[in-house]
């Protein structure tokens, strides 16, 4: 059973080389909540999200200054292995990315096999089933677990990616626009899923869909950017109902009511 954790960010700056992409973000994300990141394109939502599991380090030159604590442990402390961080903080991407040549079952088990754990076959089968059930995909694929991951529809692939992410029992689940490539029905399926996953996981989701933010999230963070080349900033962070009905900052109000720009 995963232990969902509190995330605390203190005055975080994110750079791509010399370019300051995100400036001065501080926020606390409570365990077992869903937090939505909203804001205009290019304001650094993905960039900031990736710093929560050090995925930004995959990009040459990207680095941070500041502090990210997960249950009090500094993510960027000396001797912290980013590989281990990513095993605790899972991520689902904008475009579904199952391993195309691996079977559906192997995709689910991919993360577990990384830990070099030799699992008895029956345990592996159980894990495949519970993970796929957790991702609301089991009934659709239980008869073709041996087929390649690429044989599924886009929405199914995305749920497969979620199953793959939760199979390793992470503490936190990051989702970067997980529904933007999906039809409304798959989107609703994933929103329902997020609602369920919230019982066990701390979830952070980036979305451009205001309705989605209001439907799934407990708290919402609005990011904005003053102009091209300027760093993105966290403008307002509050309960979702406050952000959408009674925000404190004018820019937030303009953005959520569609009067932006």
């Amino acid at each position: 059973m995963p232990v969902s954790k509190r995330i605390e960010v203190n005055d975080l700056n994110v750079y791509y080389g010399d370019f300051l992409a995100v400036e001065g973000v501080s926020m606390t994300i409570e365990p077992r909540t869903v937090t939505a990141f909203i804001g205009p394109s290019g304001c650094g939502k993905s960039t900031f999200l990736r710093t929560l599991n050090r995925m930004h380090e995959v990009i040459p030159g990207a680095h941070v200054r500041g502090e990210v604590l997960i249950d009090g442990n500094d993510l960027y402390g000396p001797g912290v292995d980013p590989v281990l961080v990513r095993r605790q903080v899972g991520m689902v991407f904008q475009r579904p990315n199952p391993f195309p040549t691996m079977s559906i079952a192997d995709n689910v088990l991919a993360g577990v096999r990384l830990n070099n754990r030799r699992m008895p076959k029956s345990d592996a089968d159980d894990l495949v089933e519970t993970s796929l059930q957790g991702a609301n995909l089991w009934n659709e694929v239980k008869d073709r677990l041996h087929l390649p991951g690429s044989s599924l529809s886009g929405g199914q692939q995305q749920r497969l990616c979620i199953a793959r992410a939760i199979a390793v029992s992470p503490d936190v689940l990051l989702m970067d626009e997980p529904c933007s490539a999906l039809d409304p029905i798959s989107t609703l399926a994933i929103e329902d899923l997020i609602e369920e996953l919230k019982q066990e996981y701390t979830i952070v989701i980036v979305t451009h869909n205001m309705q989605q933010a209001t439907r799934v999230s407990d708290k919402t963070a609005f990011f904005n950017i003053a102009g091209t080349g300027k760093p993105g900033k966290l403008i307002e962070y509050d309960t979702t109902s406050t952000i959408f009905t009674n925000p404190n900052v004018q820019a937030t109000e303009d953005y959520v009511s569609g009067k932006f720009g």
Partner: peptide, 26 residues
């Protein structure tokens, strides 16, 4: 595809594991 490399890395793959999961199959 960067997508597949990131899929592996985000699961906590080391670089060599990422190569085995994403680069070699491709």
């Amino acid at each position: 595809p960067r997508l597949h490399e990131e899929a592996a890395l985000a699961l906590g793959a080391t670089r060599w594991e990422m190569i085995r999961y994403a680069v070699f199959p491709y």
